[in-house]
Amino acid sequence: MNRTTRVKGTARAKRTASVKGTAGGRRARRLDPLSLTGLGCLLLLVLVALGSLVHAGGDPDAIVGPRLQPPGPGWWLGTDNLGRSMLPRVMEGVGTTLLLSSAAVLVTAALSAGFGILAGYRGGYLNELVMRVVELLYSFPAIVLAILVAAVAGPGQLAAVASIVLVTIPLMIRLVRAAAVAVAERDYVTAAAISGAGLPRILGRHILPNVAGTIAVQGTYALSVGISVEGGLSFLGFGVQPPQASLGVLIRQGGTYMMAAPWLIIGPGVVLVLAILSINVLGDGLRDRFEPRETRALI
């Protein structure tokens, strides 16, 4: 008994040692400090967004002071061209941006999981069709595709969400499909199929858990792409429409008064970059965690 547990433990230790280097078993299974910091930043932003719902930073539409005031007591991020405090407006912007992006990423993840797994496991015509559509979407530069969507659907939140979905879905479907193909070839899946397990059971119980890591990693990256796309689209005026605030809208508006009041653009700009950066860093950490790389290099 004792021996078997020891052997198991050591086998695992050896595998992680060969894959993760000196990191050892425990660190390989946990996120590193930088990624955790990224996660912390993201959670903080979510908290900020939730706070904006209860006007924690103040009423975003209330006029609190003179126009275009630099940061100071009463308006910690300055005031805009109407004399509104920027703090609650940035908080609302974070909320809008995060909500739209994460809604879009959820749609992307659900569609990718469904079509990617099915295409990867079933192959055949379905696979052909899915991959064709994916390649089609993949052929558009992100912001160009977003603009096409905005042109068709009309500027607004729906255009922003639809754009993010269409921009992020090709890569995720591809990778989920590839992961599903790799799993589908394994013996235990074949064994499950032979023993009469139904399709939903095979897909849900055997394949989905194995591609979940890919979905998590890609979903994280997709969220950062989503924030960037929403920002760009709203910045061009085709996404979220004022008076609703989003980070892109705020940066667009701040640009107009950039000379007189640079804080209008610096506040939302810093928050936007911080959001994307922390998500990307988190994504890198998740990738190292779920898809560890061999690090036995000699030079």
Partner: peptide, 29 residues
């Protein structure tokens, strides 16, 4: 092994995290 330094990872992350419209606005400013 075990990943690059924090500074390097932040810098490489920053490079892909600043959208053109944000960086461009800063430069124009």
């Amino acid at each position: 092994p075990g990943g690059g330094g924090v500074a390097g990872r932040l810098l490489s992350g920053l490079g892909v995290s600043v959208p053109e419209f944000a960086l461009g606005s800063l430069v124009v400013f």
